[in-house]
Design a protein around this nucleic acid. Structure first.
Lengths: 237, 237
DNA sequence: CGAGCAGTTGAACCGAGTCAAGGGGAGTGG
DNA sequence: CCACTCCCCTTGACTCGGTTCAACTGCTCG
């Protein structure tokens, strides 16, 4: 068993060998032969922060960086409806009825495949279909969490919940009692568009959290939390 | 081809023959043999309005009625995060991290299968996996639509959007210019919990829509719209 | 050094929430 | 058949959290 795994390992394309997407992303579902086939059709590219990622029917592993998904109302009001952090992946087999825009918040590295290959493989391996379904259901659960936040939380609970989300994403296994610091990949405007608030309110709530010692604002973009537990108390759920 | 279809048709279990779920629901993916196998393991039941539907690991076609999905904050604040209308279906292969409660809003008729059968069939037929994925992505798109509404719409836009959703669900193919009327399957409290408002605000906004002629409130539960187009104007998107 | 942008802070305002009173229909009991 | 109650809903008056408008700070970049 171990031997066979090693043989397969030997065939893994060089480019995939150290790729995070094989641990937690889409590619965990593939064996060496399939990876080799995919690698032939894949293209790796990097785009700078601010680039819009067109929904051109490709699937992409997000190797590094953060992507936001937004919905706009007719008069320009904007709501961020989701994020993708590495090593997440982007792309879907069915079009959304109302358009959703994807935009890189930071510099982003992607590894993309034509949709046709993934769709074909999904027909051949139920394992992959299951992974896609699991991924979609995860996104659904997250969306529903934020529905509850948007509909029922106060401004300060929203901001606290947001910081907790980023912290968790920075280090999922972090000890709840020890401090943690991270860079915010978002401007105040983006945070406001995610939380359904104005930038002024976001700024004020961050100041309040700072003045009561829950967070330190190292600089505009870098935050450190006294502890996960401390911020969790303020999330309302 | 037509002949073969008729042969299959002959084998369709009696109970499935006139079932809506074969048109638009889960069972559209199955052939007669598979339906027969499923029918043996399925159980049909009805529950009255107000019943909680435990997440017991079954999949269910919703034959009639409306179901709400809710998330609660620790202090009792409630947010409705989704609805299921017939002939939708309920159930999912992976547990949500945070609990979501399902409750019948009206009397509800269900046709349920053990999870094991669906999961096994999904492994055998990519068609079914695809359907489950499509369904999950639909729910995701809906959740994101409502995120935008919750975060960025005014109270009156929220109420208008809600009425439009119910109207569309009542008659998806309705002509946009002609009037339409329907029963609200929800109390004011449920509407408020869905829109992130209070019952007083919902009531006031309905009154405003009535006084400017966009809707008629036949009685507390029955609404008629002057037209789909008219209400659509007030949705903000 | 100045321009320009992101963020902060203050003051006034307003949309939706809160609190309170009353309406109206369904069910029950006399 | 009416009287009473209960629940859901509506409406009004007031409050308040979050927005709006505006001034100011501090960075970064040319």
């Amino acid at each position: 068993m171990a031997a066979r795994q090693d043989v397969q390992q030997a065939d893994v394309p060089a480019i995939c060998k150290s790729c995070e997407a094989r641990q937690d992303g889409l590619c965990g579902a593939f064996n060496a032969r399939q990876l080799a086939e995919l690698a032939k059709a894949s293209s790796r590219h990097e785009v700078p922060a601010g680039t819009e990622l067109p929904d051109d029917g490709t699937y992409s592993n997000l190797l590094s960086g953060v992507v936001k998904l937004t919905r706009n109302l007719s008069d320009g009001r904007q709501q961020i409806v989701g994020f993708h952090f590495a090593p997440d992946f982007l792309g879907r087999p069915f079009e959304a009825k109302k358009p959703i825009r994807a935009e890189a918040l930071t510099n982003v590295a992607l590894c993309s495949f034509p949709r046709a290959i993934i769709d074909r493989m999904a027909n051949e391996m139920p394992e992959l279909g299951r992974l896609l379904l699991k991924h979609a259901l995860n996104e659904l659960d997250e969306a529903r969490d934020w529905m509850a936040a948007l509909g029922r939380k106060t401004a300060s609970e929203k901001v606290a919940s947001f910081l907790l989300m980023v912290a968790r994403n920075t280090d999922p296994a972090h000890h709840p009692a020890s401090p943690i610091s991270f860079d915010l990949p978002l401007t105040r405007t983006d945070i406001a568009d995610f939380l359904g608030l104005t930038i002024e309110t976001v700024s004020r709530e961050l100041s309040r959290l700072r003045s009561d010692g829950t967070i330190r604002i190292v600089n505009k973009r870098q935050i450190s939390l006294a502890s996960m537990a401390r911020i969790e108390e303020r999330c309302g759920d």
